[in-house]
């Protein structure tokens, strides 16, 4: 009888808990997904201010956003690139021009790099450098002021974070180019 009561109490508590959680979760699910989508879309318009219309397209398991200008001409593509930085995941929205040769811009939507050091990858001067640089043969970084048209300057004291951003982009750009340009 004593054990029966223990089992019953645990069972009832768990059931009530599970019920409450599934209720809350089902109420909030749509909103959470919307938030994530909105964050990506906001970033796309930062990456490519000329874009007036965005069309989502799923190709070969990768979501690629097609960007159109006011007249309906294709101006490029945007996609999410993610990978690991110095401390945690870095998520980047990257925009490519329609010939898949130059970067339109990048926006970092999530990162947890060291404040004061690696976190400078979120600064505008760092992100702006990517505007218009060539992705072929690949993006490179250096510690000097950038000279070549596929080169960016790393954040001083935070080479690992800068390198992570460049590597994440290189990897994802290669993948996207393969998908869009068979």
């Amino acid at each position: 009888m004593k054990y029966f009561r223990i089992v019953l109490v645990l069972l009832v508590t768990s059931l009530i808990s599970a019920f409450c959680l599934s209720l809350v979760s089902s109420l909030a699910k749509a909103r959470i997904e919307n938030n994530e989508k909105a964050a990506i879309e906001r970033a796309i318009y930062v990456v490519a201010p000329a874009a007036k219309k965005v069309e989502e397209k799923l190709t070969a398991g990768k979501t690629i956003y097609k960007l159109y200008d006011g007249q309906g001409n294709l101006i490029g593509y945007a996609f999410l690139a993610k990978g690991y930085g110095y401390q945690g995941e870095i998520k980047i929205i990257c925009g490519l021009d329609k010939n898949l040769e130059k970067i339109l811009g990048i926006e970092i939507i999530a990162s947890s790099e060291t404040p004061g050091l690696g976190a400078h990858i979120n600064d505008n001067w760092f992100k702006k450098q990517f505007r218009g640089i060539k992705v072929l043969p690949r993006i490179v970084y250096s510690k000097r002021k950038s000279r070549q048209d596929n080169e960016i300057q790393a954040v001083s004291g935070a080479t690992i974070s800068s390198r992570s951003v460049v590597e994440i982009l290189n990897k994802e750009i290669t993948k996207v180019r393969k998908i869009l340009q068979p």
Binding site: I6, V9, T13, S17, L21, V24, R31
Partner: peptide, 26 residues
């Protein structure tokens, strides 16, 4: 019952924490 009180407290706490987490996310 005295023997399972911690387990029951933990379930209660975990439930409210998850509700708080989901609410913040949403």
């Amino acid at each position: 019952p005295h023997q399972v009180r911690i387990a029951v407290y933990t379930i209660i706490i975990a439930t409210f924490v998850t509700i708080a987490d989901i609410t913040l996310k949403a």
